[in-house]
């Protein structure tokens, strides 16, 4: 298990370094003259241009710039923003990340819990009406994007019934219940597609395990149904966890759209602004941080998988 953990850790770190390096050079390639880009339509003199260039460190060779940026990145320092007052980027992130992550994490929790319940119910009674309902609806639920679901929910629950706010984000430290109400609709919309996907995966895995040789043998030993069910669940869990890991990336993408629909100040609007104004350090920070979250979640889920299924550790 230790070897397995170390291996996963190394590959996660390698991926992070790769993504950080790649984004840095691609961003600089896409904006060949960031200084002119920053001035935009405002006219500027040659001195102003050179001064700005020196101030941002852009007069140094690109490799030096990269090393300076990367060195600071390792200590958690994303640099200062190029647009507006030169404030540390980490401050801006500290405000925006909780917004996006609130939606993602609540969505993930709703998705995992509901998906697991439905999947287990369908899996232990294959052929029942609930099972058939889940299979029949799964096709459309997979495909229809969360923001369309959210529009329907918004219409009914927010506009017509007024149970939830139509838009806006409330900080949890200000009003915990208000915070929960403000993120419920986006999180639930985000989760629905995944609920069915997890349910179907789990259901199929349980049905497969239920017809497996070793489960029959466990029954032949006289093991009571409840104890057999535990074995079924443990066999089926990796399938569901793999889907959750896959879904996390798309949840992040979905959250960015939904936070914008609900007028929440998350990382989506920051990404849009930063790329329109050519605010390279901000672009880099947003990419690195969002990939970092994906990598962390995948790493943790990998560990869980390895813990559940000893065979996965050898691979």
């Amino acid at each position: 298990m230790l070897k397995f953990t170390v291996k996963r850790l190394v590959s996660a770190v390698a991926l992070m370094v790769f993504v950080a390096t790649g984004t840095f050079f691609m961003a600089h390639k896409a904006i060949p003259d960031p200084v002119a880009n920053l001035f935009g339509k405002v006219s500027f003199t040659a001195e102003q241009y050179e001064a700005k260039k020196a101030q941002l460190g852009l007069d140094q060779p690109i490799l030096t710039q990269f090393w300076n940026w990367f060195r600071h990145l390792l200590t958690g320092d994303f640099g200062t923003t190029w647009v507006g007052a030169p404030t540390p980027i980490i401050k801006d992130l500290a405000v925006r990340l909780p917004v996006t992550l609130s939606i993602v994490i609540l969505g993930l929790a709703v998705m995992a819990v509901l998906g697991a319940i439905l999947g287990v119910l369908a899996g232990i009674r294959p052929g029942s009406w609930g099972d058939r309902m889940i299979s029949a609806s799964s096709v459309v639920f997979f495909a229809v994007p969360g923001f369309l679901v959210s529009i329907a929910l918004l219409w009914v629950l927010a506009v017509k019934l007024g149970w939830f706010p139509v838009s806006g984000y409330i900080k949890p430290e200000r009003d915990l219940l208000g915070w929960l109400r403000s993120i419920t609709l986006p999180a639930v919309s985000l989760a629905l597609g995944g609920v069915v996907m997890i349910a179907v995966q789990l259901r199929n895995a349980i049905v497969t395990a239920n017809s497996s040789d070793y489960v029959r043998t466990l029954r032949a030993r006289g093991l009571p149904p409840r104890a057999v069910a535990l074995h079924l669940l443990r066999s089926a869990a990796p399938a569901a966890i793999t889907i959750i890991a896959l879904m996390f990336v798309s949840l992040l993408s979905g959250a960015v759209i939904l936070e914008s629909m609900f007028n929440m100040p998350g990382i989506g609007s920051a990404t849009k602004d930063a790329s329109q104004t050519g605010n390279i350090p901000m672009i880099l920070a947003l990419t690195v941080v969002s990939v970092l979250f994906v990598v962390i979640v995948n790493f943790l889920l990998d560990l869980v998988l390895g813990w559940i299924n000893p065979k996965a550790r050898i691979k």
Partner: peptide
Amino acid sequence: DVLMSLPSIIILLIVAGL
């Protein structure tokens, strides 16, 4: 695998801006 682990919407927003 790398492509699948990138949050595509962030990258696409950057592409759109640039």
